[in-house]
């Protein structure tokens, strides 16, 4: 097997990784200027709120968080995977240099926060001070997102959400058509089986993951069977938003994130449902 090409970080010698090409990172940094980067960092981190300071000024670098992270444990205790290192190599450096970092640095930050942290909150549980490490990771994600440096597939899902309010570019007609098709399909086996669309006053509103009507049809089939067997008065929304996933939340694209949640809540209010059941 060929020896894989490695990259060594220019700023942090202990950060050694395999090359993993991604247009979203490699190409998008080409348009960045030092001014743009500095301006963005200052806009996001400029007003140092109590929440940011609570983490950055309380952390004593004890490293207890490292053993909480599956990335650190899975890579034979490589310290560059420790949660505290992820903060040190990104936000701390940005603040230390007062936002004067280059595009290559931003690319490395994006790789760390978008592909080496799952925002699983396990590190916060093992931190003796209970610091919200993932909040800091989220801030760095925000910086990278505003600069447009995000792995391509994640950015694509965010664009899908911004455009169609679901993560799989599914239009409203396709969504309705899929639901009706499934109603027919499963209804061939069961008496009076319905997938009620936009039923006002239903007890339960069920919201799938965007990928279910696109590639995971069997989930809809199973859900219809379960609801039918249990005799639930249920419905799915006929209008956007019906996708319960929220990629913009992970990217810290707050505008789109809020549109999705708002849309889900508006559907719930419009249909006067009692329970919102989400797959994600």
């Amino acid at each position: 097997m060929a020896v894989k090409e490695k990259i060594v970080s220019r700023d942090f010698k202990e950060y050694v990784r395999e090359v993993n090409p991604d247009v979203g990172l490699d190409e998008s940094i080409k348009g960045l200027t030092p001014e743009k980067i500095e301006k963005t960092i200052k806009a996001v981190l400029g007003a140092r709120t109590a929440r940011i300071r609570a983490v950055l000024e309380t952390c004593i670098h004890c490293g207890l968080c490292s053993k909480a992270c599956q990335w650190y444990l899975s890579n034979d205790g490589d310290p560059s995977y420790a949660p505290v290192a992820k903060m040190r190599m990104t936000i701390w450096e940005m603040l230390k240099r007062d936002g004067k970092v280059d595009a290559e640095f931003i690319k490395q930050c994006a790789r760390i926060v978008f592909t080496e942290c799952n925002i699983c909150h396990r590190c916060s549980m093992y931190c003796p001070y209970g610091l919200d490490v993932t909040f800091i990771i989220g801030l760095v994600r925000r910086v990278c997102f505003v600069l447009g440096v995000v792995p391509q597939r994640q950015m694509d899902q965010d664009h899908a959400h911004a455009t169609t309010l679901n993560q799989v570019w599914l239009g409203q007609n396709d969504w309705l058509d899929t639901m009706q098709w499934q109603e027919e399909e499963v209804g061939a086996e069961y008496k009076d089986l319905r997938i009620p669309i936009d039923k006002e006053g239903a007890e339960v509103m069920w919201l799938p993951l965007g990928a279910e009507p696109k590639t995971g049809i069997y989930h809809i089939e199973r859900t219809a069977k379960i609801m039918h067997a249990a005799g639930i008065d249920w419905t799915v929304p006929g209008k956007d938003v019906w996708d319960s996933s929220n990629m913009p939340m992970f990217l810290r694209d707050f505008a789109t994130m809020q549109r999705i949640v708002r849309g889900l809540f508006d559907n719930a209010i419009r249909l006067r449902i009692k329970k919102m059941v989400l797959t994600e």
Binding site: N75, Y81, F114, T115, Q154, F250
Partner: peptide, 20 residues
């Protein structure tokens, strides 16, 4: 989690990172 689900071009990197 954390938005990494869609990163299919990083699948090996992700799986290596989860030996535990």
């Amino acid at each position: 989690g954390g938005g990494l689900a869609g990163l299919s071009n990083w699948a090996a990197h992700k799986a290596r990172g989860n030996r535990v």
